Computed example of a mutant assay.
Amino acid sequence: MSRWRWLRPAYWLPLVVMLVVLGVGWHFGARRWPYLLPPLREVGTELRQDPGFFLRNALVTLREAVAGLGIGFGAAFLLAVVVSELPLARRAIMPVAVVLSVTPLVAIAPVLVVAFGFGIMPKLVLVALICFFPILINVATGLRAVPEPMLQVYRTMHASRWELLRHLRVPNALPYVFAALQIVFPLSVIGAVVAELSAAGYADGLGTTIQVASSRNNLPLVWAAIGVLAVMGALLLLLVTVVERRVLTWHDSGRAR
């Protein structure tokens, strides 16, 4: 029965009502501030005129977001294992990671262009850096959050450090991993757009589209690109949620949704 719960009005009606309220608010906002909000019909016209244009640029931004996230996730996961296993490394690295996590990384985009040249590499590095710290902090917390009685059981069986990591710490950290992914998947899209806006290089991507359209005062195109970005972020978040429910069937977080 739960598989078909989305058919019940109580499941989808609140979202529909919210979308209607937002649409009405947009309508009156466009009449009050036409220099900020174009009419929704003009935004829809932009999307209908050339959907292939938005698809091509969305794929460019998505590639930058996913590739940068992959790099950041791999590096953060490995470092999280190190800091969870070595207390000295944890005391040295985690305070620095917390400080760097609140640093405005967009400010280093010009430096990345100088270091890596024009093209996709500065964008990947910037996305990876934006995603790196939430993953590091969440995964390191999950790896260390194993209940002490469970650790004692494994130690009485003379489990090695690798066996503890593989059979106990990593499974215990999976809810924290998915919590981090729910944060960084949409954040990777934002990072890719910020990278396109601040790091010169490719002429494609939704960030570049927004920048060019803004310079031409083409508000419908700007908001159409923003709408595509919002849908992309929502779909990525939905994908993570679905995978989490499939993987964490044994955990409360996987059954709660």
Rank of each mutant, 00 (worst) to 15 (best):
V189P: 03
A107P: 00
V184K: 05
G70F: 01
L112V: 09
P175T: 04
L55P: 02
T241L: 10
T156L: 15
R48I: 07
L237D: 09
L62E: 00
R155L: 12
G72E: 06
V99R: 00
V16P: 09
V114I: 15
W12Y: 13
L238F: 13
Y11H: 12
V170P: 04
D50K: 03
L112W: 03
A92H: 11
V82L: 15
P95F: 06
L126K: 02
T45K: 07
D50Q: 04
W33D: 08
I120F: 10
A58F: 04
V184P: 04
R144C: 11
A234T: 13
R169T: 10
T208I: 13
P51N: 08
M1H: 09
F132G: 05
L164V: 11
G68K: 04
G201P: 07
A195D: 09
L100A: 10
A140S: 09
P87G: 09
M121A: 15
A200S: 14
I183E: 11
I135W: 04
L59V: 14
V243H: 07
L40E: 01
F185N: 05
L126Y: 01
V127F: 05
P134D: 07
F116A: 02
G233Q: 01
V43Q: 02
P110M: 04
A203I: 07
I190V: 15
F77P: 02
R32P: 06
V194H: 09
G74M: 13
G70R: 06
L168C: 12
R216D: 06
T209F: 03
G68E: 06
Q211E: 12
G254T: 08
L206P: 00
L15Y: 10
G142S: 10
H251T: 07
C131R: 03
F77T: 07
A30E: 07
E46V: 01
E46W: 02
L100W: 12
V125Q: 11
V113G: 04
S253G: 05
R255A: 06
L47W: 08
V231Y: 03
V16N: 05
V170D: 01
F77L: 11
L124Y: 08
F28G: 00
F133S: 01
A224F: 02
R155N: 09
L174K: 03
A115L: 15
F28L: 14
F178Q: 00
Y35S: 12
F178W: 08
M1G: 14
A89L: 13
Q152V: 13
L62I: 13
L40T: 04
R8N: 13
G68D: 07
G25P: 12
V114A: 14
V231M: 12
E64W: 10
G201S: 01
R90C: 09
A65Q: 02
V99W: 06
M1S: 13
L239E: 10
H251A: 06
T249L: 05
